[in-house]
Design a protein around this nucleic acid. Structure first.
Lengths: 312, 312
DNA sequence: TCCTCGTACAACCGGTGGTTGTACGGCGGC
DNA sequence: GCCGCCGTACAACCACCGGTTGTACGAGGA
């Protein structure tokens, strides 16, 4: 069947206007074109849809039966195009398996832009798979830290460093560094720092591994992870064990837990979040996210920061 | 929006096959054509629907959102075309305001062709209006008795004499003619015959009026009509009043009513039913109706019949 | 009877959508 | 690791579909 939509629209217009001529000028074509279209559709369907009377055209019984279906087709088409109107769909963002810090960024964004529906996922996949997911459109965006030369990214995919997030030292009140206003990475040598659950294979594990190597720190990234609450409880109770945390990490830790959050400087180890996206993705939420990140986190990008070698 | 259905079909095919090439040969076009169509639709919608991978194409998130709507459009179109498939719709037949005799013909037809859905109406309209209704497609067919020269019918409308229905005399048991096997019209002179409810303006009224004139009968077509039951009761109870009836008139008259049904001959007054229809109406029920009438009622079309002058 | 209004038919024409031919890029086999 | 295969995108060309203008025809209304 060769029914085309312009013809269906024409039939509806004629039925509603009652004349070919009026329908024609409503559609912006000549009366003859309307006549042709209707005649072609009638031939295609094998029935007469309109009866031509001196003052216009009226629907036959078959036309009356057809009309609501024709309108349904147009409505369905309308819905189809609406279904992909940019912004209609939640923005799907991956946070690379480690929700802790990145989720804080997204919570911030959500507070600032509640109109953007978010679909936050943690694929738990390797960098390559995430890259592929962004390229093939099953993700709108992903956070990662890796720096890849532009020409090694798939065409159409861009990786942009949007946030340098400084990390904080978290200690209990009994810790020797608990009273410091700030510490340097060198100060941390000899102290035990626990970042459980980060295997060496993960980006975060690699990050802290290199941080430990560069400054001679004792960071245990391999230990078992009993959850953030447990970790913070351990830190609060201990005079020797500390941990790191992002400043915006959304943690509702147990009330009454006495913890110290101490900035690290000279240099400030920052975690470099890059936003991975297709440059032709028209989702307005994506543009909003990018703008928000660049605007809100443009502060500490000073020279006195540290990032791992693989992110430089 | 210039979305065309062939493109929507293409998108569905590509989504289901996973490759442009396979979809192309399924649709009977070249791969390049498929590529063009998809690209055009993507440009039109402003989003990428497919991600091109080495082994074919996969839906993006937008594509996944679009696909069910695309299928809905095609289903709606399918239903639209199905809605006018000839025979899908009940056959709409007019019996010209007088159901009695013609309804019998249609009951016969319905018994023979139960698969044809019927929509029997009695517009109660003048011949001209019925003619217009048939011409403009708001009736599939109409029964009438008038004979009109072919060239005075609107183009596309045909009037065909399909049934000559003989009329029967109905009397009570006390009527002087009650014992006759058959009567002639001349025999009826001097007897009172009641055909209530038929004004002179109606076809039936004109029929009996002319019958009365031709044979000097006393036919009262103007009296008040209290319904067929009342009329038959009157006839059954009377030794002088008779009435006419079609042999197939569907009457469930009160049980125990003693009536005589007497054929009329030399000549036999027949009521000439013509079937009015458009010759381009493809409804299969219409063809079946016409064939049924011509086949089932081809008997008494002998020379010894009487029809009014305006039907000759 | 004439005029007006509205649709159908004819001839012409331009643009859309097809085709073939070719380039390019990624994966898998040798 | 290189080459060949497979699959899509781009370019050039062309036919045909769908539009336009011009005109005929039929039916009501004044």
């Amino acid at each position: 069947m060769e029914v085309d939509l312009e013809t269906v629209r024409t039939v509806v217009a004629v039925a509603e206007e009652g004349q070919f001529q009026v329908a024609a000028q409503e559609l912006g074509v000549s009366q003859q074109a309307v006549s042709k279209r209707v005649a072609a559709l009638e031939a295609e369907l094998g029935v007469r849809l309109f009866t031509r009377v001196p003052r216009g055209a009226r629907l036959t019984l078959d036309g009356q039966a057809f009309l609501p279906h024709a309108k349904a087709v147009l409505r369905a088409l309308e819905k189809a195009t609406a279904s992909v109107r940019p912004g209609r769909r939640p923005l799907r963002v991956d946070v690379m398996g480690t929700r802790v810090m990145t989720a804080g960024l997204l919570q911030d964004f959500h507070r600032a832009h509640p109109e953007v529906a978010l679909d936050v996922v943690a694929l738990g996949a390797a960098g390559k798979a995430v890259l592929a997911a962004v390229r093939d459109g099953s993700l709108d965006a992903a956070f990662w830290a890796r720096r890849i030369p532009e020409d090694q990214l798939p065409p159409g995919v861009r990786s942009e460093r949007v946030v340098d997030e400084p990390i904080l030292l978290v200690t209990g009140t009994g810790h020797p560094l608990a009273g410091a206003d700030a510490v340097t990475p060198a100060d941390l040598a000899g102290h035990r720092i626990r970042m459980p659950g980060l295997g060496q294979g993960t980006e975060w594990g690699a990050y802290y591994g290199e941080l430990a190597d560069d400054f001679g720190l004792d960071i245990d990234v391999a230990g078992p992870n009993f959850g953030a609450d447990h970790l913070l409880q351990t830190v609060a109770d201990s005079a020797t064990v500390a941990t790191f945390m992002g400043p915006r990490t959304p943690l509702a830790y147990p009330a009454g837990l006495e913890l110290r959050m101490i900035p690290v400087h000279r240099p400030t180890p920052v975690y470099p979040h890059s936003l991975l996206r297709r440059d032709d993705n028209p989702h307005p939420g994506l543009a909003a996210l990018r703008a928000h990140l660049l605007r809100a986190y443009s502060e500490p990008r000073g020279s006195d920061t540290w990032v791992p070698a693989w992110a430089r």
